[in-house]
């Protein structure tokens, strides 16, 4: 039974971070209809930035997030303004290819600077464990869980009850009407993309302690994020966090109960099954 509780706890903790990764993508998709296939590579970029800050100034990942968040947000804003927005009039599919190209650029840019060896960024909390009965939790996971949900709630409140949040929702619902009401749609889209990428810097800091990183990992993060976003019905905040938990749990249970290779397949299998029987994802409202 202790295995069960262990898997449950681990799944919930990791899943919350996946949910956070996916919120960034869902937010961007809702406002500008863009699915960013370089998403995972932006996470990589933030992680390696933390690594560089650690090597140079011995900064803990949690501290260096204060630097990486604004830098990533700025990069996100520039990428949207100068690479993605010019494509706005064209087919959506070209944006997929453009972000795939961007993914190659980021991934190999990192490879050129840092080399291909797996690297680790140590943190003071890295090896701290919390023991609750039979269940052993790693402190970084617990921190990730708390911060991820705090961020999700913060974003939710921001969308609900600030003017900027209302303008984001207005653009999501109907960009033309929002423009007619005086919302600067272009600005909202740039800022949303910047926020989406900035969130990734937070997620990167949360994932970093104890996780080895390589330049080529980006695609795997993109895939996990996509699974979560699609399961969550693309834009619904609550169901995206829920899907993060589903994917996190299926990963944890797969690792503990099923053999190695098959275990890694469990999240994908669950994803395909859910999508076959509930094509709209885990949302209860069909929009």
């Amino acid at each position: 039974m202790s295995e069960f509780w262990q898997a449950l706890a681990q799944g919930v903790l990791i899943g919350s971070t996946y949910g956070l990764l996916a919120l960034g993508m869902g937010l961007v998709y809702g406002v500008s209809g863009i699915v960013n296939f370089a998403h995972g590579d932006f996470i990589s970029l933030a992680m390696f930035m933390s690594l560089a800050l650690f090597s140079a100034f011995a900064l803990d990942p949690y501290v260096s997030a204060l630097i990486t968040i604004p830098v990533m947000a700025l990069i996100g804003g520039l990428v949207y303004r100068y690479l993605l927005r010019p494509m706005a009039g064209h087919q959506f599919l070209m944006i997929v290819q453009l972000t795939l190209g961007l993914s190659l650029v980021i991934q190999n840019g990192i490879l050129m600077v840092f080399g291909g060896q797996p690297a680790r960024t140590p943190s003071i909390v890295e090896s701290k464990l919390i023991i609750l009965g039979d269940v052993v939790l790693r402190l970084p996971h617990l921190i990730a869980f708390v911060v991820a949900f705090a961020m999700a709630i913060g974003l939710y409140v921001m969308l609900r009850s600030t003017d900027f949040g209302r303008s984001i929702r207005a653009v999501h619902q109907n960009a033309r009407a929002a423009a007619l009401m005086g919302v600067d749609v272009g600005r909202v889209q740039v800022v949303t993309f910047a926020i989406g990428v900035g969130i990734l810097a937070v997620a990167a800091a949360l994932l970093l302690p104890g996780t080895p990183i390589t330049p080529t990992q980006g695609l795997q993060y993109t895939v996990i994020t996509l699974l979560v976003v699609v399961l969550g019905g693309m834009t619904n905040f609550v169901s995206i966090m829920l899907s993060g938990l589903v994917i996190g749990l299926s990963e944890a249970f797969g690792q503990i109960y099923v053999s190695d290779t098959l275990g890694r397949l469990v999240p994908y299998a669950i994803f395909v099954l859910i999508m076959l029987f509930r094509p709209q994802g885990l949302t209860w409202r069909t929009s």
Partner: peptide, 22 residues
């Protein structure tokens, strides 16, 4: 000398071509 450079250049070429002639 610089592993990854050729993929990097691929990526840049692709982005430039898509932006210039979609």
């Amino acid at each position: 000398a610089v592993p990854g450079l050729h993929y990097f250049i691929y990526g840049v070429v692709v982005i430039v071509v898509i932006l210039a002639t979609p």
